[in-house]
Simulated scan of single mutants.
Amino acid sequence: MVATPFTVDLNKPLVFQVGHLGKAYDDWVHQPIVSKEGPRFFANDFLEFLTRTKWWVIPMVWLPVTCWLVSLSVQTGLTPPQAALTVVGGIFIWTLMEYLLHRFLFHIKTKSYCANTIHYLLHGYHHKHPMDGLRLVFPPAATAILCLLLWNLFKLLTPPSITPALFGGTLLGYVMYDCTHYYLHHGKPSKGYSRDLKRYHLNHHFRIQSEGFGVTSSLWDRVFGTLPSTKAV
């Protein structure tokens, strides 16, 4: 007897369903549903609340942290110009992290129940429901966990006076990324770089999902040869 393929019920919480898709998950998650109405993730109301974040929460939470970090570097010996240059370096580091995470983690192919579920929570839901405005940015609680890991790595690799400003610049790069990402999905740029970037990103969602991993720029796609042949959608 041939087993009946698992079908996701979109009218029920999705997170604990998608793992059952097995090998079919990758095809399913890359067939977008274009609607501003987001699906329910969990039956539990508190867990569901934690998955939803308005875009303006990101700069409100993390910009003060960035300023505090840069001030720490100034207090421990960096001049303001040196601190500013270090922040720029941190932003540059973020652009590479943005590309590498998007390409090698967010687009990893999965097929087991646990791996499918984790991938869906991490990035798969965004490809399935790309216009869900409350799940376009990372919840601050999840970001804080990643920040703790990254902060300790920076402390290990950089001098004490450099670490706060460099990490602050990386955090600023993240804020720029999340706000830009939201704007590319819900903003309506009419001309210039922002319009081209929107086309570039939507091309990744709706035409060539195996290329175009940059969000704030196409720099690293050019460097690593994943620049799509077309930017039009």
Rank of each mutant, 00 (worst) to 15 (best):
A141Y: 10
I162F: 11
F6C: 00
E211F: 15
M97E: 03
A142N: 05
F106S: 06
S161W: 04
V70M: 09
T163S: 09
S190R: 08
I91E: 07
V57S: 11
G168T: 03
Y177H: 15
S35N: 03
G192W: 01
L100S: 08
V223C: 05
T230C: 07
Q17P: 01
L172M: 14
P228N: 07
L69E: 06
A165D: 05
I91Y: 07
K128F: 15
T53R: 08
W220I: 12
N152D: 02
M131T: 01
T7F: 04
G212V: 05
L10G: 07
F167L: 13
N203R: 01
V34S: 10
E37H: 11
F206S: 00
V137Q: 08
P139R: 15
G19A: 11
V137M: 11
N11Q: 06
L146I: 02
Y113I: 14
L47E: 12
F46V: 14
L166R: 04
Y174H: 10
D26V: 14
I108N: 01
V233P: 04
K128A: 12
P140E: 08
A83W: 06
H102S: 12
G124E: 01
V215M: 00
G38L: 07
H127T: 15
L50N: 07
L100N: 02
S35L: 02
F206A: 06
D9T: 06
P228K: 05
L100E: 14
L172F: 05
K36G: 11
P140S: 14
F16C: 09
I91H: 01
V74F: 09
A115V: 00
Q31V: 12
F154T: 04
I108V: 13
V15L: 04
L148H: 15
L63G: 00
L105F: 05
G38N: 06
L122H: 09
H204L: 10
H102P: 14
H119P: 03
Y177M: 06
H20V: 02
I91T: 07
H204C: 04
F206V: 03
G19S: 06
L122G: 00
L69M: 12
G214M: 02
V34G: 01
F154P: 07
V29E: 03
T158K: 03
N203G: 14
E48Q: 14
T117I: 07
H185A: 05
A232N: 12
S194N: 10
L146Q: 03
Y174L: 15
K12D: 09
Q82N: 14
F46P: 07
T66P: 10
C147K: 07
L146F: 08
R135T: 04
T86P: 12
V233Q: 10
H126T: 02
T53L: 00
L146M: 14
S217N: 11
Y25L: 04
V74R: 07
P159H: 14
I58Y: 02
S35Y: 00
G124N: 06
Y200T: 08
A144T: 15
Y182G: 13
T51I: 13
L78I: 12
G22F: 10
I58H: 08
